[in-house]
């Protein structure tokens, strides 16, 4: 609604947001793990304000990609459940669901969060494949960050199952062995409305935004993934400013894991 966009803009001039947050302030973040112990090998539920996402991890054995014969593989799947927002419809994933999967995928893949070399069973023939399933339960803005945190928390929570090379079957009993993880990138989403940069946009801020940048930051402050969204363009200085914000916030969020 245009009235609310104008209202948001008038608040920004007064240096405040709809819910009285500062431009750099995230809503309350809660992380619960092991929420689906019977059906997933690892799982987590993350809430950022009223936005809620559940992620689950499953593993299977399959052939490696031909260009990485000694490395495991990873597949991220996000479904925008109609439950989560009046905007989402049932059916095959649309572009927004795909964008969500791709953004989470890119950060985890490029950062080598999963140590895929340790997921090799038999070079060129059999490797572990990790399936990351993401289900938004409520979209109140900033699904990207919530989905990403849920995926990472679920990965940390995952206990592997065993592969019996003789019978060539997976033994579906959870071991004590955790999934081998190398790095923990954190994803931060920042939106631009007029001249203001706001982290963690809520539902109305997302509707009103000009542009959005999601940045994945590693522990050493290097950037391993980025995606721009929104209809308006960004200048290089603006991008650099948003990246600085992301680096600053990533430090705080990483402590919550």
């Amino acid at each position: 609604m245009n009235i609310n966009k104008e209202y948001i803009e008038s608040l920004l001039i007064k240096n405040t947001r709809l819910d009285n947050r500062k431009f750099k302030e995230y809503r309350k973040i809660t992380i619960e793990t092991d929420v689906s112990p019977k059906s997933a090998l690892g799982s987590a539920r993350v809430k950022i304000g009223d936005t809620e996402v559940i992620a689950g991890i499953k593993m299977d054995v399959g052939e490696p990609y031909p260009d990485t014969p000694d490395e495991g593989a990873m597949i991220v799947n996000a479904e925008l459940l109609p439950l989560a927002s009046p905007k989402f419809e049932g059916g095959p994933p649309g572009v927004n669901a795909i964008e969500l999967s791709r953004i989470v995928d890119r950060a985890i893949r490029e950062s080598k969060a999963i140590d895929t070399k340790k997921l090799c069973i038999k070079k060129g023939e059999k490797v572990w494949i990790v399936f990351i399933d993401i289900y938004p339960i409520n979209d109140s803005g900033n699904l990207f960050d919530a989905a990403y945190l849920a995926a990472i928390a679920a990965l940390k929570n995952t206990k592997m199952v065993k592969y019996d090379a003789k019978t060539e079957k997976i033994v579906y009993e959870k071991t004590n062995k955790s999934l081998p993880l190398l790095n923990l990138p954190i994803e931060c989403t920042i939106v631009k409305i007029n001249d203001a940069f706001l982290v963690d946009p809520n539902y109305e801020e997302e509707e009103a935004m000009d542009a959005r940048l999601t940045v994945a930051v590693l522990e050493d402050d290097s950037i391993c993934a980025m995606q721009k969204g929104g209809d308006q363009p960004l200048s290089i200085e603006e991008v650099l400013k948003m990246i600085d914000l992301a680096i600053e916030k990533a430090k705080d969020i990483r402590k919550k894991l």
């Binding site: 609604m1 009235i3 609310n4 104008e6 209202y7 008038s10």
Partner: peptide, 11 residues
């Protein structure tokens, strides 16, 4: 009386 297009404000 009072019926009009809304300008400004918040919904």
């Amino acid at each position: 009386p009072g019926l009009r297009k809304l300008k400004g404000g918040r919904i």
